[in-house]
């Protein structure tokens, strides 16, 4: 299972680099039975090899970064994968805005009615900001996207960046129409309970083999 997870991590490291969403220092991790597998922040994602993916036990955080990943897994049973990235439109919004509203229904479904901006990378700030959501932005920092699988965290990263571009672009066009709160909550609930649940479960089962 560990070998399969490592191969999957390598696949998504490559994808994030091709999507132009990451910079040096970004990491991704996957929950395991007693801890997590996490990539080294010291190498660009495109250059990560199996040796750069290390196992860290639940109570054995090596630094603030691994402590943050473990804190998220500890507090959120629904999360099995985390991708930290620096998607350019999200970074731009995180500099000056407190939150990013969902202007598209896929963001409302995968992320929530808004993506909020955490004041820091501190675990307490991040967990509070990410309450009932799958992602958050970091003030003057990057993005934390999570999911039931790495695939979902990757899609979440893409959808969040598209949501950011949409919010910025539609504002530039002079008419940024946000998804109403009721509709956003309804769509998110249906997504979590129903849509793609089978697909995500199949992906998790494949890894557990």
């Amino acid at each position: 299972m560990i070998d399969k997870l490592k191969l999957q991590i390598l696949e998504f490291c490559k994808a994030m680099e091709e999507d132009k969403l990451v910079e040096l220092g970004d990491t991704m991790s996957v929950r395991t039975d007693n801890g997590m597998l996490i990539t080294s922040p010291l190498k660009p994602m495109a250059q990560i090899t199996e040796e750069d993916i290390i196992y860290i036990a639940k109570k054995d955080a090596k630094d603030e970064l691994s402590a943050l990943h473990l804190a998220i897994y500890g507090a959120r049973e629904d999360i099995n994968a985390i991708i930290m990235n620096h998607a350019p439109f999200c970074v731009g919004i995180a500099k000056k805005c407190k939150k990013m509203p969902a202007c598209l229904d896929d963001m409302a479904q995968i992320i929530g009615p808004t993506a909020k901006v955490s004041p820091s990378y501190k675990a307490t700030d991040v967990l509070k900001t990410m309450h009932n959501r799958n992602a958050c932005l970091i003030r003057n920092g990057g993005v934390i996207a999570t999911g039931r699988t790495l695939d979902e965290a990757h899609t979440g990263s893409l959808v969040l960046e598209k949501g950011a571009l949409t919010y910025v672009g539609s504002t530039v066009l002079g008419n940024s129409v946000k998804i109403g709160l009721f509709d956003a909550i309804l769509m998110r609930t249906i997504y979590k309970l129903k849509y793609s649940k089978k697909d995500q479960a199949a992906k998790q089962a494949e890894i557990k083999g």
């Binding site: 571009l165 949409t166 919010y167 672009g169 066009l173 940024s176 129409v177």
Partner: peptide
């Protein structure tokens, strides 16, 4: 759901 086209869709232009 392409990036820029979805942006125009959100601006309802």
């Amino acid at each position: 759901h392409p990036l820029w086209s979805s942006t125009c869709a959100a601006a309802r232009v």
